Amino acid sequence: MKNLMVLAVTFIGFSMLNAQNSDIKLYTKYGSDHKELHDLMRFQDVETIKLTFTGNDLKGKHYRLLVKEYTNGSLAKIDTIIDSGQHDYVSVINDTIFEFKYHVKTQINNTIKMNFKFDRFSSPRLYNIRASEDKYALHDFLKSSDPMPVELNAKTLIMGYFLPYIDKVSGWKKYCDVSGSEYKPEEWGTVFDIPNYYLIEIIFE
Rank of each mutant, 00 (worst) to 15 (best):
Y70K: 07
Y70T: 04
Y70P: 00
T71P: 00
T71V: 15
N72C: 03
N72R: 13
G73L: 11
S74F: 15
S74E: 15
L75T: 05
A76G: 02
A76R: 14
K77D: 14
K77R: 10
I78V: 13
D79N: 09
D79L: 06
T80G: 06
I81D: 02
I81H: 00
I82H: 01
D83F: 02
S84Y: 01
G85Q: 01
Q86R: 07
Q86S: 12
H87N: 09
D88P: 00
D88I: 08
V90K: 08
V90I: 15
V90N: 10
S91V: 00
V92W: 01
I93W: 02
I93Q: 03
I93N: 05
N94F: 02
N94E: 13
D95H: 13
D95L: 07
D95W: 03
T96E: 14
T96L: 03
F98E: 02
F98L: 05
E99I: 01
E99T: 12
F100I: 03
Y102M: 07
Y102D: 01
Y102I: 04
Y102Q: 02
H103L: 14
K105A: 09
K105M: 10
Q107M: 10
Q107N: 15
Q107H: 06
Q107P: 00
Q107F: 00
I108L: 11
I108D: 14
N109H: 08
N109K: 04
N109M: 06
N110T: 09
T111G: 02
T111A: 03
T111H: 09
T111W: 01
I112T: 07
K113Q: 14
K113E: 15
K113Y: 15
N115C: 04
N115H: 02
F116V: 06
F118W: 01
D119N: 12
D119M: 09
D119W: 06
R120P: 01
F121K: 00
F121M: 07
F121C: 03
S122K: 02
S122L: 00
S122T: 04
S122N: 09
S123N: 09
S123W: 05
R125F: 06
R125G: 02
Y127F: 15
N128Q: 08
I129C: 08
I129L: 05
I129K: 12
R130I: 13
R130A: 11
R130G: 11
A131W: 06
A131T: 05
S132I: 08
S132V: 08
S132Q: 07
S132E: 10
E133F: 05
D134R: 10
D134L: 13
D134T: 09
K135M: 10
K135Y: 10
Y136K: 05
Y136F: 12
A137E: 10
A137Q: 12
A137M: 13
L138K: 05
H139I: 03
H139N: 14
H139S: 12
D140I: 05
D140E: 03
D140C: 03
D140W: 01
L142R: 15
K143A: 12
S145Q: 09
